[in-house]
Amino acid sequence: MIKHYYCKTVLLIDDNDIDNALNEKLIRASNFAEHVIIRQTAKDALLFLKNDAISHQIPDIIILDITMPMGNGFEFLEAYEKLPDAILNQSKIVMLTSSLDERDHKRANENKLVKIVLNKPLSFETLEELKNRL
């Protein structure tokens, strides 16, 4: 059986390994993406984008957590903005957070790099919604 994926590659950036496992399962189960790449810190994610992704695997969608140790989601965005256009043009950023703080949501929505802001947990419904909105 040939699977039809919504997109080729998703990059998950989240320090919480349980969330990462859950989200990976959901993405695979819903045929959202063919490849799921996971990085637990903003720093590692940036390294991946700079070094590996540029050559063969620029993610189509980046799902980014806000609250992370050693550089949060907003700090990631600041560094991300300076990456090559090839990446900026291809990757669409979705912010995914457990934060209920309106200030976080407002700040995320105001960032022009961020396409959509979602509340945790991720679900089949939200992934379907993503397909429609992106």
Binding site: D15, D17, Q40, T41, M68, P69, M70
Partner: peptide, 12 residues
């Protein structure tokens, strides 16, 4: 709330 690692994520 400061965390210096993602290993065994604590609350900080």
């Amino acid at each position: 709330f400061y965390r210096a690692t993602v290993v065994n994520s604590g609350s900080g």
